[in-house]
């Protein structure tokens, strides 16, 4: 069998890496819910969850257990297959982006060079794009299959919001690509480590646009219109109960974690620790320092996401569309033209 010609050690290594990344994403998402409630408590001068365990540290576990034990209700007139497919797709697309993020440099472990990136494909950024554009399906299918007009309206809102903000997101990325000249996230990170500055210095406007669009793509406040509970009862997951609801909520936090990691990688140097020369460190130390740097940046960005959520009120739907189409897209185009001109006149 030529099937056995596969490099089994390589395959095993990647499978272990994928398992680790997925478990880390899940744990981070779990504790992001806890962090969210603590931050909300802090912002509103409350204590936040403090009953389960010391400082309420076991609260996410208790919440998860509660969701697992709740009764599962599937509405009578809903499409059962699609009803179940919705949360599955939401979870799947939330997990998929993590495959191309470089979590650290290459390290030598037991005589093998291990790459802390599942796939270093030469179309990295476009892959992110593809997965982001698929992200709306979970919401749309779930909302429609619930057979509830509020869910349907929330799903339509969510889909149109995602499509509108994808454009500005893409144009902001194009400006970044003109600078880096590569689509691979590994190359982009390496350039930031070797160069003097992170990309945010060269692309402040692009960073801002990308950040705002990420907020919108993650359905975070002030862009949380698909879940506007004051207008739509609850949103696209109104009919969901038990762990299927948990999947939707969880997917949202995973999305937030992954998109913060992507922002950190693209604009904030990835696993580059500032003021430290990584080349001088030994393998394992460099790896740990890199991981610390990446997670530090990511957690700071997650905190900013939460900070914004508990500070700003929600947009009205027309304001949302105006911001997307009439402010962000022209700004992103302007950014792209300026970047293009600068690249043309200085670098060649």
């Amino acid at each position: 069998m030529t099937l056995l010609a596969l490099d089994w050690a390589f395959t095993l290594e990647k499978i272990i890496l994928i398992a680790i990344i997925i478990s880390i994403s899940l744990v981070v998402a779990m504790y992001a819910t806890y962090a969210e409630r603590k931050v909300a408590g802090f912002m509103q001068d409350r204590i936040g969850p403090n009953r389960a365990g010391p400082f309420g540290i076991l609260q996410p576990l208790a919440d998860g257990l509660k969701l697992f034990f709740k009764e599962e209700v599937i509405p009578n007139h809903s499409n059962k297959f699609l009803f179940i497919l919705g949360p599955c797709l939401a979870m799947l697309t939330a997990m998929m982006t993590s495959a191309i993020i470089p979590w650290g440099g290459k390290v030598e472990l037991g005589g093998r060079i291990v790459d802390l990136q599942v796939a270093d494909i030469n179309i990295g950024i476009l892959y992110i794009f593809g997965v982001v554009s698929l992200g709306v399906y979970g919401m749309m299918i779930g909302g429609w299959a619930s057979n509830n007009k509020y869910s349907l309206m929330a799903a339509l809102r969510g889909a149109s919001q995602a499509i509108s903000y994808e454009l500005a997101l893409g144009i902001a990325l194009i400006a970044l690509l003109m600078l880096t000249g590569s689509l691979s996230l590994r190359t982009i990170t390496d350039q930031q480590i070797q160069g003097n500055w992170w990309n945010i210095v060269y692309q402040p406007l692009g960073f801002l646009i990308f950040f705002i669009c990420s907020l919108a793509e993650c359905n975070r406040a002030p862009f949380d219109l698909p879940e506007a509970e004051s207008e739509l009862n609850m949103g696209y997951h109104q009919e969901y109960s038990s762990m299927k609801l948990g999947f939707f909520l969880f997917a949202e936090y995973i999305n937030m974690f992954i998109s913060c990691t992507v922002i950190a990688t693209l604009f904030l140097g990835g696993y580059d620790m500032p003021f430290v020369d990584e080349a001088g460190l030994s393998g394992i130390t460099a790896l740990l320092v890199g991981l610390l740097a990446l997670f530090g940046k990511t957690f700071f960005l997650i905190f900013v996401f939460m900070w914004i959520r508990w500070t700003l009120p929600r947009f009205r739907y027309d304001q949302l569309m105006n911001l997307g189409w009439k402010a962000l897209i022209p700004l992103a185009l302007l950014n792209m033209v300026i970047t293009g001109a600068v690249v043309l006149f200085t670098m060649k």
């Binding site: 179309i123 476009l126 593809g130 554009s133 749309m140 299918i141 799903a155 889909a159």
Partner: peptide, 26 residues
């Protein structure tokens, strides 16, 4: 042809099919 593959997903699976789904749902 990785570029073609991903663009196929972005444009057709990601954008056009969402609009199809929109229309059919409505």
């Amino acid at each position: 042809a990785q570029f073609l593959a991903i663009v196929n997903i972005i444009v057709y699976a990601g954008a056009i099919m969402v609009l199809f789904l929109f229309v059919v749902m409505l």
